[in-house]
């Protein structure tokens, strides 16, 4: 009996060490699979964010040793009127993206389901702007907005208005660039909406037809409510994208004239790589990161809340 017990315990012991060994092997496998990605990611994403935070406490020109100045960069930043202009312009991009770009994308998507000819041509051409590089788009539109030889002013002249020096006017420059942003990104939302519209069951419209619904009712009672998830996720993409905006402003206006179209991104770039105020630029960069973080957390929290509410209502 005792012998049997002893045998059992050795068997158990063996099994335990085997499963322990297996666990270790498993951990090693996981590590091997994940480590290449993790190393690159740590080196070029995680470390730089922490380093940026660290740099932001220094007065530093990028080459010599910096001087530790605590929160002074941040204090200076919050009283820097250019920074506030930049923040305001970033907000303008966000608002334009959500309230102009996304509705336009929806209209474009709906047009692809309209009972008219030429849908294939439309779906191809509507998507073109999204494929071009932002630099190329910026350069192209600089000439479209040219005060003398630009097509936009040509059109305005035809309509009986005076020429406008779009990109050199402090109030008009931002309008011009925002227009180009809408032009470039509306097709992206068009595609998202198109995919969502395809997914709406045809029966719903057939049923509505039987009830004698008009097109507007069909849109407002069927299409729009069912597109709500897409509208929400598009808005998230638009908000996040707006915080990152840089290329098109850098190319078209460089943040000018007189900082009128400055963004957090362009201002950070100038402070870092034109003026070599690397510490100050790091503070701007970290504020950008922080805002993105807050926005992300807010979106996650809203999503969590929405899901919880969904559970309750079921």
């Amino acid at each position: 009996m005792q012998q049997a017990d002893a045998r059992l315990s050795t068997v158990l012991e063996e099994a335990r060490s085997k499963s322990k060994k297996k666990k270790w092997r498993n951990a090693l496998t996981i590590l091997l699979f994940v480590s290449p990605a993790l190393i690159v990611y740590a080196m070029y994403v995680i470390y730089p964010i922490l380093a940026t935070l660290n740099y932001s406490f220094y007065d530093w020109n990028g080459s010599s040793v910096g001087t530790y100045i605590g929160l002074q960069n941040y204090v200076q930043l919050f009283s820097d009127s250019i920074f506030w202009t930049a923040l305001r312009n970033n907000t303008w991009i966000t608002l334009t993206s959500v309230f102009v770009q996304i509705p336009l994308g929806l209209i474009m998507a709906l047009m692809l389901f309209a009972p008219i000819k030429g849908i294939r041509l439309m779906s191809s051409v509507y998507f073109f702007p999204f494929l071009m590089s932002t630099v190329a788009i910026g350069l192209l539109w600089i000439y479209m907005f040219d005060p003398i030889n630009g097509s936009i002013n040509q059109l305005i002249n035809l309509l009986g208005f005076e020429n406008v020096a779009w990109l050199s006017g402090e109030n008009t420059a931002i309008i011009a660039v925002l227009f180009v942003i809408v032009w470039q990104f509306a097709p992206f939302y068009m595609i998202l909406f198109r995919a969502a519209i395809v997914g709406i069951p045809e029966e719903l419209y057939e049923a509505a037809d039987i009830d004698g619904a008009n097109p507007w009712h069909k849109f407002s009672r069927i299409t729009l409510p069912l597109l709500m998830p897409t509208i929400v996720s598009s808005s998230i993409l638009a908000i996040v994208g707006s915080l990152k905006a840089f290329d098109i402003f850098y190319v078209m206006t460089g943040g000018g004239p007189n900082h009128a179209t400055e963004l957090m991104g362009t201002y950070m770039f100038k402070q870092a790589f034109v003026n070599f105020n690397m510490g100050y630029a790091s503070a701007i960069a970290f504020v950008m990161f922080f805002i993105a973080l807050i926005v992300t957390i807010l979106i996650q929290a809203l999503d969590f809340y929405r899901q919880k509410k969904g559970v309750f209502s079921e």
Partner: peptide, 8 residues
């Protein structure tokens, strides 16, 4: 935002 990593 890419800018948060540019200087490092």
């Amino acid at each position: 935002p890419i800018h948060a990593t540019l200087i490092p």
